[in-house]
Design a binder for these strands. Structure first.
Lengths: 161, 161
DNA sequence: CTCACTCGGTTGCTTGATGCAACCAAGTGT
DNA sequence: ACACTTGGTTGCATCAAGCAACCGAGTGAG
C-alpha cells in the first residue's frame, strides 16, 4: 500500500490529502505561490532533501498542480508555475495559515500577513479582505512580513523567502 | 530530525503542518467532527493501523486539539472530543473538501455535502452558507451524503460513517 | 462456571519513505 | 584550466507506517 492513499474513504478531504497530503507537498505549493519557482530556490527555502523535492515536483506536475516550463535550453533549466488547480489551493493554505497564527504565533503576532493587493487590507481566515470585504482568490493577494517576523527570525529560524 | 517538523520555516502554514500534517491526523479530526468518538469507531472508519491511531490520538490530545474523556470506568473506556482549537480546523477541512470536490469528484457530483444546520443551505468553499449568506463555524454545520455518494459506494469504497 | 466477544490499546516485525551526502552533465565566469 | 551554478540522480542509513498477534478487564450466553 502506498503512503499517499487513503483507501476506502468517500470523503473528498481524503481525496485532497491523497494528492497534496504528503510531507512537503503543501509547503512546496506555498513556496511557488510566494514566488520561488526554481528547484534550487525551493530547496534552499524549505531545506527539503533534493531527491524528495524532485519526487514531489514531479508528482505535483503529474497531478496538474504545477507546470514545468523551461526558461533556458541547453542545459535545460526549468521553472515551476501554479496551474489554476494549484492556485485553487489558496483558501486551504489561508485557513492553515490562520490556524497556525492563532495557535502558534508568539505574543508579537503572526510572522506573515496576507494582504489584498488592490486595497492593502489584511486578508482574513476565509480569504476575505477585512478592509473592503471582497472575497479573494490567490492572485488577489500577496504575502508580506507580519509583526512577529523579526521575533521569528531572532528565534533562529531562516529567512527563506 | 523528526518527521513532523519543518525546521527553519517562519510561515504559520508550516507550524500548522507540524501539528496536523502527519498522515491520518487531519482525517482523524474530520472523523471526530463527524461524530466518531471512540477508538474502534475511528479505526474502523479510517482503516488506519491501530498503533498509528493510538499515537495520533495521543499527539492530538497533547496538542490540545482533542480531549479524552472516560465514558466508563473499569475497564476504562474513552471518547475523544474536539476542543475549540480542534473545531477551529473546520475552515481548513472545508477548503480541502471543496478542492477535492472540484477536482476529484465524479460526474455525479461530490460524495458529501456540508449543510447549514439552521437553514439547510449548502456550505461553500469558504464556510459561508450559500442560502442565508452567514459565515459559519464548525458547530453550525453538519455533513450529509451528497449526489455522488452512491457512485462512490459502488466504486468499492467503504461506507465508513 | 466457562467460553467467546468487546474495547482500547501495546508489542514485534517487515516494508517503504525520508534525510543526507556524493556524484553527474552541461554550461558560465575568471 | 578550474571552480561554480543549476537541476537533478544514486546509494545508503534511519525512521515511520502497516499488519498481525497479544493483553487486561469486563460482559453476555449457555
Amino acid at each position: 500500500m502506498l503512503r499517499n492513499d487513503y483507501p476506502g474513504q468517500i470523503c473528498s478531504v481524503a481525496k485532497s490529502l491523497e494528492v497534496i497530503g504528503e510531507r512537503w507537498s503543501l509547503l512546496i505549493v506555498r513556496d511557488v505561490m510566494n514566488g520561488n519557482r526554481r528547484f534550487g530556490e525551493i530547496q534552499g527555502s524549505l531545506g527539503v532533501a533534493r531527491n524528495v523535492l524532485s519526487a514531489r515536483l514531479q508528482h505535483l506536475v503529474e497531478e496538474g498542480i504545477l507546470e514545468r516550463r523551461a526558461y533556458h535550453e541547453n542545459p535545460p533549466r526549468y521553472e515551476y508555475f501554479l496551474t489554476d488547480k494549484g492556485l485553487d489551493l489558496w483558501p486551504a493554505l489561508i485557513a492553515l495559515l490562520s490556524w497556525g497564527d492563532k495557535y502558534s504565533a508568539g505574543p508579537e503576532g503572526p510572522p506573515r500577513l496576507i494582504v489584498h493587493k488592490e486595497c492593502g487590507g489584511v486578508v482574513s481566515e476565509r480569504g476575505i479582505c477585512e478592509s473592503c470585504g471582497k472575497l479573494l482568490h490567490a492572485r488577489d493577494a500577496r504575502q508580506v512580513a507580519g509583526p512577529g517576523f523579526e521575533a521569528a527570525l531572532a528565534a533562529g529560524e531562516s529567512s527563506a523567502d
